[in-house]
Computed example of a mutant assay.
Amino acid sequence: METRRLEYFVVLARERSFRRAAEVLFISQPALSQQIRRLEQDVGTVLIDRSMHPIEVTPAGERLLVRSRRVLEELSEIEGVAEQARSGHVGQVKVGIAPSLMFSAVPDVVGKFRSAHPNVDVTLHREITPAILDQVAEQRLDVGVTFSQFSPHTLRWTKLYDDRFVVVVAERHRLAQLPALRMSDLREETFLMLVRRSAPDLHDATIAACAAVGFTPHAQDAGFQVEGAGYVDQIGLVGAGYGVAVIPAAVATLTIPGVVYRPLVEPELTLPTSMCRSPHLRNASADLFVSYAAEQLCGGRSSVSPSD
């Protein structure tokens, strides 16, 4: 039994005229009459009393009419759900986010997206950058948000914005008296840095910025790297007098006793915050999220890797 015939039957029952029903359905009257007869053959009984003017639905037809309306309504709902799924308005998105970006505008954008698209289940997964890149490539994460831009080239990248970095020093430190700091001011200081595998882009950018003004970051006592630590631990050690640190400006929103944050002005250190996806990913909800985040964070003026 074709659902099209049920639709024709419902319209005919409402219009009570083959001519008017044919006009509503944009088909010829003979074609409509033929489809109704085939429906009657399908169910094995007469549905329309053609001897009456206007036509009447038979008792058997009335019972089928109730069920036909219900079936067509349910089919319409199913088609609506399918269209929402195709357009990404129903689905799931797993987003990997670098630890420092948990303090940025990205989680707020995720919250706004969830409010705007309540039928999309978005989950945040806090991971270090290398783990994000691996899991995005393997499609265990749908989207990654990190400081990496267009690397590795096997992923699709969408740049959101450039994030600047600041210096954190103990409030009793002599450098705390300065309104802004140059990298050369830190020449004799001990740098507290996360291990490279946790934040490779910031790690390499900091070393490169030091090299640009003629020195290599100094290591004493507490060590050049803070093994297994995060930004909060890093800032806490600065407050305890173990050294200084260069951190993302978003993290500097944390109020931690004993430290102050100062802009880094020479050179100004920035890194791009970008989203990445696997080129093989087929997830309309993830595409919708990336478009939404780009619009929210950079007004839709994002740059995209060539592979996109």
Rank of each mutant, 00 (worst) to 15 (best):
L39W: 08
T273N: 05
V226L: 10
R63E: 08
V120E: 06
G239R: 08
V43M: 06
V304G: 05
L160R: 02
C298F: 10
I97C: 05
Y261M: 11
A245E: 01
G61N: 05
K159Q: 15
Q35L: 05
T45H: 03
F113W: 05
R262D: 06
F113G: 08
P107N: 07
L64H: 08
A208N: 11
S305P: 09
V169H: 02
L264S: 08
R156K: 15
S87T: 14
D49N: 13
Q225G: 06
H203V: 04
L75T: 02
Q34F: 15
Q35S: 14
D287K: 09
G61H: 02
L271N: 06
H280D: 10
P279E: 01
C210A: 13
F9Y: 15
E295R: 13
S115M: 14
P272M: 13
L124G: 03
D204V: 03
D163I: 09
D134M: 07
I132K: 11
R70E: 13
R182Y: 03
V71Y: 13
L32N: 05
L39R: 08
L186G: 00
V166A: 04
F150C: 10
R19H: 12
Q139C: 09
G241K: 07
D163T: 13
G80F: 09
E268P: 12
L192Q: 01
T255E: 15
V259H: 03
T206D: 03
V238T: 06
E171M: 12
R197S: 14
S278N: 11
A208P: 02
G111K: 13
H53A: 07
L192P: 00
T158S: 09
D121M: 11
V109S: 01
D308F: 15
L181I: 13
A205C: 08
D185R: 00
A212S: 15
L133K: 08
F9Q: 10
G243T: 01
L186C: 00
V238K: 06
A252T: 13
T129V: 12
Q296R: 14
V11W: 06
Y242R: 10
F191P: 00
R16H: 03
S68E: 07
F9V: 14
I48H: 01
R174F: 11
L194R: 03
R67M: 11
H153K: 13
F18E: 08
S115F: 12
F26E: 15
A249C: 08
D42N: 11
Y231N: 09
V259E: 02
S148E: 12
A294V: 15
S33C: 04
V136F: 14
D204P: 00
R69G: 14
D134L: 07
T206F: 00
G243K: 00
A137Q: 12
S198I: 04
L39G: 04
L178H: 11
V143Y: 06
V195P: 00
Q225C: 11
R262N: 09
V46P: 00
P267S: 02
A208Y: 04
A245F: 03
L39T: 02
H117W: 07
E295W: 07
G299R: 12
Y292M: 11
G61S: 07
R164T: 11
E83F: 04
V81L: 15
L264F: 12
D233L: 07
L155N: 02
D287E: 15
A208M: 10
F150V: 09
G228I: 00
L25C: 03
F150I: 12
D121E: 10
T3C: 12
L264H: 10
